[in-house]
Amino acid sequence: MDEPPTTAAAPIGEGGGVAVGAEGFGMEGPRGWVFREVGFHAEPGSLIAIEGPSGSGRTCLLLALTGRMKPSEGHATVGALRLPKQMAAVRRISALAHVPGVTDLDPALTVGEHLRERALLQRRFDGSLRGLLRPRRERVAEAEGRIDAALGAAGLDRASLPKGERTAVRDLERVEALRLSLALALVGRPRLLGVDDTDLKLSEAERAETWALLRSLTEAGTTVVAVCSEAPEGALVVSTAKKNETGTDTGAGTEAEPRTGAETRAGTEDETEPRTGTEAAAEPAAEPETRTEAADPDTEGADPDTGADPDTDTRAESAVDTGAELHTKTASQADRGDDDKEMGDAIAETRLA
């Protein structure tokens, strides 16, 4: 009988959790500061809760602390590693779970397919060359050991699912999908685990269950950074909002609070007051100034196609020439009328004769 792999005892890194800290940590985007002046220090195996409203830079701070996004100012430390200089090294000892757009689960795949795929990727990219040359039986046993340890740490029992490991992701409950995402991240035995949207659309009982699960991971030695709208008791809170409800500083974003899209639009309306389509349609359009200038009583006889300034000599000469032309045309029409009258009289006389 094969002995179980000795490396599958715990779903954490060889050295356990790491200390995480930041000083003057900030990130600036195209629309301004996403977060700024973040400062804290957490011991290894701590539960760090990034608290704040949606759109306040919580996920960006999570990605920056795990080496996935580059900050603009300040620095952070993950164990003996320093950000942003050693981002690649931080990525090797950290993992992400439940991050939209980054660790999304494929709804068409089953639980077993997700787990086997993750184990293969772990062996291919994180394993040593010597490990790749081991017999297939040993490699399969180690992969199974990693998967079992990760599922146990995440609290996901494959046998309790409707179709076992053949259950599709689309058929999982929200908490089950969260546990699966955690298990996939724990396959690599990270020393730092980042979790996004921890309490999104969960009931009070499900939130308490999720926080208890994350605390169990920290008790096993893994440092956990979790994004939430409301931090639990006992967690180290790092807020991305400038002020809390009582008006005291929270320690993050104390100098420049990140603006949301609605706040940016509101500030623009105060300065420029743009009109909406309905208001613009209701107000009559302003009459151009050129129309007012054209209504000059001294140029009534001018050619309407002339576009020169009425105060210039060119416009005056054009008006005189146009008036003379009209006078000549009127005289010509009068002479033509007399000729027509004489011709009519001659025809009448001819008929009478």
Rank of each mutant, 00 (worst) to 15 (best):
L65E: 02
E245R: 03
E273H: 14
D196Y: 01
L105G: 08
V34P: 06
C60D: 13
E173S: 15
A220Q: 12
K243M: 14
E117P: 08
H327E: 15
R259A: 14
E269R: 13
L186V: 06
A153R: 03
T330E: 13
G55S: 04
R146G: 05
V18M: 01
T248A: 11
E117N: 13
I12Q: 05
G253H: 01
S332N: 15
S56N: 02
D157H: 08
L202M: 10
A282W: 15
P258K: 03
T322L: 10
C60M: 10
A141R: 07
G221Q: 01
L120V: 13
R191I: 03
V175D: 04
E263C: 03
A346F: 10
D309Q: 11
G277H: 14
P4K: 05
Q333D: 11
T278N: 14
K201W: 11
I48D: 00
E257M: 06
L65A: 04
Q122D: 02
P284W: 06
D309V: 13
G16L: 12
D197T: 07
G194Q: 00
A235N: 05
R124E: 03
Q333K: 15
D345P: 00
A281K: 12
P84C: 05
V34H: 06
G267V: 07
E138N: 06
P288R: 02
R137G: 09
V187N: 05
A212C: 12
D126A: 14
S128D: 13
L214G: 03
G127C: 01
E142N: 10
T278M: 10
E209H: 11
I50F: 09
A208L: 10
A262H: 10
E233N: 10
T314M: 07
A266S: 08
L62T: 00
G55F: 01
A177S: 09
T59S: 08
A353Q: 09
K329A: 15
G39F: 04
V320Y: 09
K243G: 13
T278K: 12
T330D: 15
R58M: 07
L217H: 02
E209C: 11
E117V: 12
E300L: 15
G127S: 09
T272I: 14
P288M: 01
L186P: 01
A256D: 11
E325W: 15
P11C: 12
A42S: 04
I147A: 06
G307L: 14
R136H: 09
R91D: 05
A119S: 09
E51K: 07
A231Q: 04
T268I: 12
A143F: 01
L156Q: 05
T314Q: 10
K341G: 08
T66P: 02
A212Q: 15
A42K: 02
V20R: 01
V187Y: 04
